[in-house]
C-alpha cells in the first residue's frame, strides 16, 4: 500500500517554442501513513509532481504505481484513484460552486455514486473534521470568510475518504491564526485516521513543525529527501535555491559559530529552547 514513482519526467507543451521541462527523472517511494512536506521555489515542479499522483497530468515518460498497480495501465480506473488520492489545490475556495456549504461538500461523495444518506453522513463528518459547525451548513459558501471557505473546500475532499491527502499550499493567504488552525486539523486527521498526508509549501516553518519527512524540489529534480533536521543542515544550499531553514536553525548555528557547544539539529522553537538550556547547563 504505497505510491511508487519511477523515472518520471514531464514536459509541458512538448515540441514547440514554449516547451518546458517540469519534472526530470523523479524516483520516490511514498509509504502509507507518512506525513511528508514537499518544498521548493515557484516553478520547481512541486505542483506538477502532485498532479501526477492522482493522474490529472500524465508523465511524458516513467511510471507511477499505486498499490503496485501502474496507473498508466489500460483499464486502470482513474476515477477510483482520484477517490483514494485526494488533492486539494492551491486556493481551493475558488472551486466552490453550490448554493450551500453542505451541498458543496456532498459533490465529491455524490460523484462516487453513494446513497444520498451516506453522502450526507460523510459530508457532515468531513465538515466536523475541519471544524465547521452546523450553523454553516446551510450558508452560501460565498458568505464565509477566507479561512472558512478554505476549510469547506478541504472538507469537500475529505468527504471522499481519501487514503492519501495532498494539499498544495493550504495556508497561502491566510492569517497566522487561520494557518495554525488548518495545519493542526490536518495533523489531527493524520494521527486519528492514519492517512498519508503530503503537504506542499514554501514556508519552512510550516513544514518543520508538522512533517516527518521533507522532499526538496529544485528545477524538476529531487534535491534532498530526508527527515527535517537533516535536510535543514543543508541550509546554505537551500538558500541558494531561494529557500531557507527555519529561523531557529539559524539561531543555533549562529551560537555554534560563536563558540557555544550546542545541538544544531533543531527544527522547532521548543527544540531550540531545550538545546539552548542544555548548552547553558540548566
Amino acid at each position: 500500500m504505497a505510491i511508487r514513482i519511477e523515472n518520471l519526467s514531464y514536459v509541458y507543451s512538448e515540441g514547440n517554442a514554449f516547451e518546458k521541462k517540469a519534472l526530470d527523472q523523479i524516483n520516490l517511494i511514498i509509504p502509507d501513513g507518512q506525513f511528508i512536506g514537499v518544498i521548493g521555489h515557484t516553478g520547481s515542479g512541486k505542483s506538477t509532481l502532485i498532479q501526477q499522483l492522482n493522474g490529472l497530468l500524465k508523465g511524458t515518460s516513467g511510471k507511477i504505481f499505486y498499490n503496485d498497480q501502474c496507473i498508466y495501465d489500460e483499464g486502470f480506473e482513474m476515477k477510483k484513484l482520484r477517490e483514494k488520492v485526494g488533492l486539494v489545490f492551491q486556493y481551493p475556495e475558488y472551486q466552490l460552486f453550490e448554493a450551500t456549504v453542505l451541498e458543496d461538500v456532498c459533490f465529491g461523495p455524490k460523484n462516487e455514486g453513494l446513497s444520498p444518506e451516506e453522502v450526507k453522513e460523510r459530508a457532515i463528518e468531513a465538515l466536523n473534521q475541519v471544524g465547521l459547525s452546523e450553523e454553516y451548513y446551510e450558508k452560501s459558501p460565498f458568505e464565509l470568510s477566507g479561512g472558512q471557505k478554505r476549510r469547506a473546500a478541504i472538507a469537500g475532499i475529505l468527504a471522499m475518504h481519501p487514503e492519501v491527502l495532498i494539499l498544495d499550499e493550504p495556508t497561502a493567504g491566510l492569517d497566522p491564526k487561520g494557518r495554525d488552525e488548518i495545519l493542526d486539523q490536518i495533523k489531527k486527521l493524520h494521527t486519528e485516521r492514519g492517512i498519508t498526508v503530503i503537504l506542499v509549501s514554501h514556508s519552512m516553518e510550516d513544514v518543520a513543525n508538522y512533517v516527518e519527512r521533507i522532499i526538496v524540489m529544485n528545477k524538476g529534480c529531487v534535491m534532498f529527501d530526508g527527515i527535517p533536521r537533516e535536510v535543514f543542515q543543508h541550509y546554505r544550499e537551500l538558500e541558494k535555491i531561494g529557500l531557507a531553514a527555519p529561523q531557529v536553525t539559524y539561531v543555533t548555528k549562529g551560537l555554534e559559530e560563536r563558540g557555544w557547544k550546542i545541538d544544531t539539529m533543531v527544527t522547532t522553537v521548543k527544540e531550540a529552547k531545550n538545546a539552548i538550556l542544555k548548552s547553558l547547563g540548566k
Binding site: 498532479q51 492522482n54 490529472l56 476515477k79 482520484r82 477517490e83 485526494g86 488533492l87 486539494v88 489545490f89 481551493p92 475558488y94 472551486q95 459533490f107 465529491g108 460523484n111 462516487e112 469537500g156 475532499i157 471522499m160
Partner: peptide, 13 residues
C-alpha cells in the same frame, strides 16, 4: 484548466 482539474479531483466527469 485549474477549476476543471480541481473538480476532477473531486470525481467530476
Amino acid at each position: 484548466d485549474k477549476i476543471m482539474k480541481a473538480q476532477m479531483a473531486r470525481g467530476a466527469d
